[in-house]
Design a protein around this nucleic acid. Sequence first.
DNA 1: TCGCATTGCATAGCAAGCTATATAATATTA
DNA 2: TAATATTATATAGCTTGCTATGCAATGCGA
Lengths: 147, 147
Amino acid sequence: MEFDRMSSAGYLLNYSARLFAELLRNRIAPLGIVPGQFPALLALWEKDGVTQKELLATLDIEQATLANTLTRMERDGLITRKEHPADARARTIHLTERGRFIRDSAYQAATQINQEALAGLSEAETKAFLDSLRRVIGRIKEDEKSL
Amino acid sequence: MEFDRMSSAGYLLNYSARLFAELLRNRIAPLGIVPGQFPALLALWEKDGVTQKELLATLDIEQATLANTLTRMERDGLITRKEHPADARARTIHLTERGRFIRDSAYQAATQINQEALAGLSEAETKAFLDSLRRVIGRIKEDEKSL
DNA sequence: TCGCATTGCATAGCAAGCTATATAATATTA
DNA sequence: TAATATTATATAGCTTGCTATGCAATGCGA
């Protein structure tokens, strides 16, 4: 009556994010990776051999979340971690051969999912949609600072 | 280079959903509730005394997720569960006084958050944005069926 | 250079989502 | 009506996010 979920940006964003994640999960399962590993993989495909701290700086998650994700990625044979040559606290993160190998298929999967999910929108609508998303994100991050 | 997160609907949706949830979490913390309880509360404020199955039918989550959320809501003193008069397998779900009491403040908090987060968009842009979200959701759910 | 602050990472513990499976009660059917 | 199927809910175990905290190594200032 008074609060319609389907008119609430917060609700719609949560729901669509879950649907997207599910789609992606199904699509990349054959590659042996899961959605939470995607951002870290993207970053490592760009630049390998970095420390956790350097990797973290390129991602929008918390340090503890990344540490746990990296542990699972190591368990799954996607990365290895070596001692840092100069700082015994740090470790450098390296893609395994498998981690490197799946790159193209993973890109393709993600690109396809985005295309399919947005297939109902025109090119102009898609542009506006992504732009609105970026502006909403920017707005919330501004807001947070002023707390 | 080849895959820019900030142009990926999936990434932007995940990120904005997390930011929204964080905002909501902070805003409703004083009420003693958390974001995951919101949809169930909305439904119960509309109609109380229902079974888990009836409640589930109005939500977009899985049965097991709801069962766990209800257990936490009971622990937190928001609901109680009574034996169903006619079916010993089922239980009816009832808001406590506290669960009923926070209704208006919770509505207000959610409404405010939506407004603030969308404050950078014009009315027309907001409309288009919500409409795109609903269309994307619809599209993915269609897709899923044909798997 | 010794002591303290900072830094890099890990761990604990929680929420909220999922799938798969268990359990008990009810309903159906041979 | 006895055996079987279905239904309502709960539980186990996983991921992905979070905050708070621990711990060891490094860096810096007196």
